[in-house]
Design a binder for these strands. Structure first.
Lengths: 163, 163
DNA sequence: TACGTATACTTGAGTTCTCAAGGATCATAG
DNA sequence: CTATGATCCTTGAGAACTCAAGTATACGTA
């Protein structure tokens, strides 16, 4: 009951509008992604999701990842990944590679152009993140925030398996 | 320099993947909105944005708001609001009303059906938010989180007005 | 070996946004 | 009173997803 108070209780300001942690979370996300993706798009012609996928590949062993694992790590659906990679493939940033041991799977592999792209885009994008997301906080607060965010569920909790 | 560390530094785990506060923020948003909107859609046939807009109207004076103000408060573009309200209008949840003093503006007004809808949807949606977003935290932590989130910029910072 | 089920991926259709452009109205300054 | 510029809103085109359905491959089991 006590923890319900702040997340759902209407913290009604002068305007009469509810302003909860959840609403702030939503608004902050909308504002930040809008600005960050606009900058990333303008300078490097990449979507936030593009960048996200490229980074995952960049740090993966052999700079390759099964499409399905990629989907799960960036929280897209399988079809979302197919569409996104279509774009990155036609830009020449990633390539396909077949799996010898399982003909169902296709690997997404970072090309040399992809490596160059991510190394080139990293700096300015991280600077933008720092400016918009990092600057308002001290080191300790940022750690606090990271710890709190880490507690949020990344998948469905109850699968309602009645047994 | 110190605050840059945690937001951009690669907190590389065993997997070699970066996991920063920002990345956690992105992932948490994706997971939470996916689950919440899926539930809201299933039970009440409303989008998260629909709900958001209905709540804004619900708390507004006279349960009406200029479309542009509505857009700004939920962080959508003007055209986004037009499209969203198109849907709510054809569902009979909101109506249009002209402004006597300014023929450019149109008010969005909650209909009786709209009021009923929001009052009916509120309970389960707030419970879902509590379950997924509130439950992992104590009251104090939730307040901490809200305070931290409140510091994030909701609009563009520098308009680059070189002067 | 063959059947059923699970997994990996793609595709068609639809949704929810965005941006750029245009129309209408207002406010101000000559 | 009229030109200029700002504001409110809509519309066409398109981006970035989602879901449902389909294909192909793998695996367990009788």
């Amino acid at each position: 009951m006590s923890s319900q108070v702040l997340s759902t209780q209407e913290v009604v300001g002068v305007s009469g509008l509810p302003d909860t942690a959840w609403v702030r979370f939503l608004r902050a996300h909308a504002a930040l992604t809008r600005e960050l993706s606009s900058r990333l798009e303008a300078v490097h012609e990449l979507t936030l999701s593009d960048f996200d996928v490229l980074v995952q590949l960049y740090y993966a062993e052999g700079r390759r990842l099964r499409r399905i694992d990629l989907a799960r790590s960036v929280l897209l659906t399988a079809s979302g990944i197919t569409r996104l990679l279509d774009g990155l493939e036609s830009s020449g940033l990633v390539g396909k590679e077949r799996c010898d041991s399982d003909a169902r799977v296709t690997y997404a592999v970072l090309t040399n152009a992809g490596v160059r792209k991510i190394e080139e885009a990293r700096e300015s994008h991280l600077a933008d993140i720092e400016e918009l997301f990092g600057a308002p906080f001290s080191t300790q607060e940022l750690k606090q925030l990271a710890d709190l965010l880490a507690r949020l569920p990344l998948a469905h909790t109850s699968e309602a398996c009645s047994a």
